[in-house]
Design a protein around this nucleic acid. Sequence first.
RNA 1: GGGUUGGUAGCUCAAUGGUAGAGCAGUGCCCUUUUAAGGCAUUGGUUGAGGGUUCGAGUCCCUCCCAACCCA
Length: 483
Amino acid sequence: MEPSSLSDLLAIRRQKLDALHAADVAPFGRGFETDGAVADVRAKFAEAAPLRAAGRITAHRDMGKSQFLDLSDVTGRMQIFLHAKEVGDEAFAIFQNLDIGDFIGVEGEGFITKTGEPTIRVKRFEVLAKSLRPLPDKWHGVQDTEIKYRQRYLDLIANPASREVFGKRIAIVRAIRRFLEERGFVEVETPMMQAVAGGAAAQPFQTHHNALGMDLFLRIAPELYLKRLLVGGFPKVFELNRNFRNEGISRRHNPEFTMLEAYWAYADFEKMAGLVEELICHLAETICGGLQIAHRDADGNVVKMINLARPWRRARYADLIRGISPDWYELTPELRRARCSELGIDASHCVADFEVTQHLFEKLIEEKTMDPLFVTHCPKELVPLAKQNAEDPSVVDVYELVINGQEISPGYSELNDPIVQRRRLEDQSGGETQKIDQDFIEALEYGMPPAGGIGIGIDRLVMMLTGVESIRDVLLFPHMKPR
RNA sequence: GGGUUGGUAGCUCAAUGGUAGAGCAGUGCCCUUUUAAGGCAUUGGUUGAGGGUUCGAGUCCCUCCCAACCCA
């Protein structure tokens, strides 16, 4: 005859909390020695071996005098067996006040049940944290996207698929660091708050430093600081951390996102392309089970296959455009806009002529390219920080790596001529000289070695490698509108 | 910003304009090897918010809020 609306579910848990207090049991316990995370305990499991484990109760199978429970954390699940005769009547009475969701620590020994499940026979347990709210459905998990994103902890508790994606993300980030360190790159940290938000073309977030009385911007890229380190004598550096862009939120955009940038003195964009190809294949093979990446829909049907087998295709930007429209570069700007309409592309919002071409590229090449493609020799207007090509000064020595219909990684032969660099930045800034990082130009004037540089958008890389279609599914806490 | 779809119990989902339901969770009872445990019983609702049409609205109309997807 007990009610169970939410407030009543909460009230019942509060009553159990009070009962624990009344029995002189601390419902929010203290430290508890364990044999490691749940997965570690499972790995150490042996029949009759003493075992200590702690975790959240995520399932309860009540057989009367015999109680089977699952103890879980993000690493795994371990069954425990609790019996009145083993723990004593007093402890069994305390056990009656536990719920699914509570954290407990147990001490006991291993045994295998009739059905072959490794299990801890509990001799003693401690309440470590009482859960005052009910958990989501144990079988269906959390489906509501609002809850998944706003209360990620519930998603992690209830949805194994989410745990798997984030587990892979963690492994990918760790493997990237190891890969680069093994090749002599050192990880550095450069300013996230910058007086001039340089290194890319994007709207920055603005903030203010009170003591200095000056406006600062959250960085949109670390590039200009990493290049200062090339000037300073670091031959191989990288930074793997957050960038911020004050722009729209979408399936592929979050205002803060994680970027790898790496710079290699005396290398060029071709060498960087080889490095990135090797890195991504290494990640796929060691973390994602191979070079064939399957993307599945909610029912588990394969909707997309990405083939990462080497060598990856390389093609010049202009040749790809000619593949869509052979006479493109013979047309006047007006005729190019008309051609876009014929091809079903709306280029009306594009201002400059090169933007029309770029829009065509994005819609008809980038978005349709699933397997890796290095697009090389891009127009110089798109990339003000890269070296111009020796034979054709209208293009730069860069690649743009496209996989899964998205730009995953750019790589440059970095521009190290301070005079050309100043001119290119002035052209890009449209006369707004306060947007030019003068100190960076000055650093170049002291001399920066020729270098190859890369960026890799980690969120999009993880999306591609784990087969999820929204950036929110690879960010633990994606930005949401406030409630 | 525009379009489409959706928002029902704590969670997952039903419900021709005609008595708001199920499973899980919860509560009570039975069961000493269960594992989506099982059996019996039982509680739980401002149907996103506010208006309107109607004898009667979860369902139709309008406005707003939130989300997902598509477009810009």
